[in-house]
């Protein structure tokens, strides 16, 4: 499979993982390893940045796996910038999943504040991957603001509903000069494959793996589906037809005239 480059890093895997909701940190680690993921997002609020002995961080110290701190919990651009600076200092990375959701119920992203924070953080040298609605115009604006990728949602986070925003994702993929990572709502491996077939550059999955009966096996299943979807996309699939093609074309007489 072809490699993916975002900013200064190159990834062999196009599957990114979230680290919440697992029944133990050990199981989280095993699932990440099984998934082959090389980029995992971790909520600042879940880890103890002061003590240096955080159990979750300990289990995320996996060779070849990069940390993508996220700003989950912030409600506006100002809080996001502050949280990003602390994360960079504590975790030693300028990579950031920028997520601003003032609505704690559905955790839907605030595009306006995200754009503002993106301008600010880009000036400070952050590698910004913003979590946003599947809004093609916002994606272009984030490109101008200095984002390194865009992460539009497939459906509301944690719902496992698949690509409800498919028509908008198609436009984003068509227009984007940045890698497009479909985030949120991917509930089963076939959803991930579908996103990759559409031409997404990567997907981010959390709930579907963490809450599966066997998260390790599900991690592996996602690994395969992402690969299959990507290769399927690259192979140039035939057009989908609504009807079978007539075996006796109506216009064949033209060549006999």
């Amino acid at each position: 499979m072809d490699k993916l480059t975002i900013a200064d890093k190159t990834f062999n895997s196009r599957l990114f993982l979230g680290t919440g909701k697992f029944s133990s940190n050990q199981l989280m680690q095993d699932s990440i390893v099984a998934s082959g993921s090389e980029l995992v997002t971790v909520a600042l609020k879940r880890v103890d940045m002061k003590s240096g002995a955080d159990d979750m961080l300990k289990h995320l110290n996996i060779p070849g796996v990069n940390l993508l701190p996220n700003t989950s919990g912030v409600r506006n651009a100002k809080e996001a910038v502050f949280a990003a600076q602390l994360a960079a200092e504590a975790l030693g990375t300028k990579w950031l999943k920028l997520e601003i959701h003032p609505d704690p119920k559905y955790l839907l992203p605030d595009g306006e504040e995200t754009l503002k924070a993106c301008y600010e953080l880009a000036k400070e040298g952050f590698i910004i991957l913003p979590y946003i609605h599947a809004d093609p115009v916002l994606c272009k604006k984030l490109e101008d603001a200095g984002a390194s990728a865009v992460m539009p949602l497939g459906s509301p986070i944690g719902t496992n509903q698949g690509l409800k925003t498919k028509e908008f994702l198609k436009i984003i993929i068509e227009q984007s000069n940045l890698p497009v990572i479909v985030d949120a709502g991917i509930g089963v491996p076939s959803h991930a494959a579908e996103a990759m077939e559409l031409g997404a550059d990567a997907v981010l999955v959390n709930t579907a793996i963490a809450v599966a009966h066997d998260p390790v096996q599900m991690g592996e299943a996602f690994k395969m589906s992402v690969q299959a979807g990507r290769i399927g996309h690259l192979s140039g699939p035939g057009a989908v037809r609504q009807q079978a093609e007539a075996s006796s074309p109506l216009t064949s007489f033209l060549s006999e005239l």
Binding site: F22, S23, S24, N25, L44, K45, R46, V47, D48, M49, G73, V74, E79, F82, A83, L86
Partner: peptide, 17 residues
């Protein structure tokens, strides 16, 4: 909690927020 197959979360907030 752990033997029930759940992870105990001690920290899910940060004063920086």
């Amino acid at each position: 909690i752990q033997s029930a197959g759940y992870e105990t979360v001690w920290k899910d907030w940060d004063q920086c927020l």
